[in-house]
Every structure is written in C-alpha cells, then in structure tokens.
Design a protein around this nucleic acid. Structure first.
Lengths: 150, 150
DNA sequence: ACTGAAAGTGAGAAGCATTCTCATCTTGGA
DNA sequence: TCCAAGATGAGAATGCTTCTCACTTTCAGT
C-alpha cells in the first residue's frame, strides 16, 4: 500500500469511521475524503472527487463504503439535493440534527429542538411520536456575515 | 362522463384540490380517491386503487395530477415509505407538519413545534435557518388505544 | 511468512420511482 | 360549434442506488 505523510493517524481516524470493520486501501481513501470534506456531499460528488486521484475507483465501492460508515455512525444523512442523498461526516453520537448551509454546503450540528413541551400538542391529542426527522436549511454564520443575507 | 350520487359537491371538492385549473374526468377520479383516502399513500398505491375501477388510467396521469394538486396545496408530502414519497390530502394553509401513524397510515396535522426559542441555539451561533422539514412518525390515538403500545 | 475463508472490488446490469415524449383526445372559452 | 391550450396513455428515458459475478485483498490462525 502506498503511504503518505501522517498516514498512521489518518488511518486510525479512517478506520474509526467504519467502526472497526475490515479495511481496504479503497475504504481508506474514501474515509479520508469524507474526513477532509468541508460540509455535505452526495455519493456521486465524492466519487468524482476521488476519481481525480484514483481513476479506477468504482461508484459501487463508494456507495458500499458510505453504507458501512453510515451503519457505524461515521456519516449521517443530512438532507437531499437534486434527488440525491446529502451526506456528511458526523461523530456526535447523541441525538441531534443538522443545519445545511445552502450557500457553502457546510453542515452544522444542532441540538434537537424538540423537547417534551414541543410535542405536547401531539401528546394532548393522544398520539405518540416515536421517531422524527428534522432537516434544517439556511445560512451558516460565515456566509451570513459574508453578505448572504443581502 | 359517468356521474355518481353526490357528484356535484364531490366535483367542487375535487376541483378545489387543483386550485381552479382545468378539470378532466381522470383528474376528478384521482382527486376523489385522494379525498377518500384514509391517511397517507404513495403515488403507486393510489394508482393501484384507481385501476380497480378505472383500468385504463395511466401512472403518469396520476403523477401529473398529484403534482398539480401539490402545486395548488391540495396534497402534501408527509414522509416516505420504501423509497416512495408518502402523500396525503391536506387543506391547512398555515405552517404545520404531519404525524404519520406507522400502524394504520393515518396522518395527523400538528402545529410546527419549532418556535423562536427552539431555534435559539442556531441563532446564538450566528446561523440563520431559512427552511426546515419535520416528519413525525408514531402511533395515532386510535392505534395507541387499540394496543399498539404493547 | 503462509493459508484460507470471509470480505471487498470494479464493471455493468438491474431495480425502482419519477419524468419525459409524442401522437391522440378533451376541455372550455369565444 | 370551433379550436388552441391543456390532458392522456403507453412506453421510453432518466437518475439514484443496489445487486451480481468473477476476481482480488485482507487478516486471524498457524
């Protein structure tokens, strides 16, 4: 395997994304691309990015690696863009959601805004909420300052 | 056009779903199926249901009619099931969300649980939330009483 | 280091929901 | 009634994602 500078710590971080499963050179590359990604990405975007340095990498491999990381909690689905799932690197293991910046694509983790009281209306009516999905879109602080609000 | 009992009021209700656009026999049938649906449905489910009485009805026609109703605000996307979009009849024109009963498929409209304070965390960090999507899954009061919680 | 079974890979086919194309009706205002 | 805009049905096309298959790589146990 070709090793680059800082490969040991990068390997450890990459391996962590898969939750300790078997590691291949391709999965390592994919994990590093996920770790170095700024913000959200689609599987296809990640594949294109990786193709620049690894022309032989298959799209199915990217999907499989992302699925493995998803299962291990290393990446999360944070929304959708143009019909494709938007993914992002995520290490928080507590319950939270994501704010996707529609300007730069960056992803900010936010605490779940749904508390006991917020769901009181449903509870009062006798319903039980067992699962919820929240996706937030907006502008991150940087883009907001840069004039995104103009 | 074949007319059934109560067709005049049904027509009016059906027409309203499209927001006053041109009306065809097929669109009328589709709108009535939407109005009589109990809970959420996918485009394909609706098509199958309609096929029983209207064998010639095309799937594309159902998709087009649903898109028209969606644009007019007569139906809303309330979640997803097995890769297909879950739709439901919805007439509330204020901002709200939907609770999909995972047992019977019924859909309950709920007020948006996100208030000013709920988004304070994002605001404090300097971010701006411009759009959000919330999908709630759980059990409706009826299924809960019927032992769904067992 | 060697071995073998389990797991990963690449290419392309397949699956699926949804949209588009096009020739042919319908609709509804003039 | 007339007719242009709009709707329809069948199937092709599209795009995302998953599966298949033959082959290669990984790694625990030796």
């Amino acid at each position: 395997m070709i090793r680059t500078t800082d490969s040991r710590s990068a390997d450890a971080a990459a391996r962590a994304l898969y939750g300790g499963a078997r590691m291949s050179e391709q999965r390592s590359l994919i994990a590093r691309a996920v770790l170095s990604a700024t913000g959200a990405f689609t599987a296809d975007e990640l594949h294109h990015r990786l193709r620049e340095t690894s022309p032989g990498l298959g799209l199915a491999t990217v999907y499989r690696a992302l699925a493995a990381m998803h299962a291990a909690g290393g990446v999360a689905t944070v929304g959708e863009r143009g019909g494709s799932a938007l993914l992002a690197h995520c290490v928080r293991d507590d319950h939270h959601h994501h704010l996707v910046c529609t300007s730069c694509g960056d992803v900010i983790s936010v605490d779940c805004p749904l508390g006991e009281t917020a769901l009181a209306a449903a509870a009062r009516a006798g319903h039980l909420v067992t699962r919820h999905e929240i996706t937030l879109y907006g502008l991150c602080a940087r883009c907001l300052r840069a004039g995104g609000g103009a």
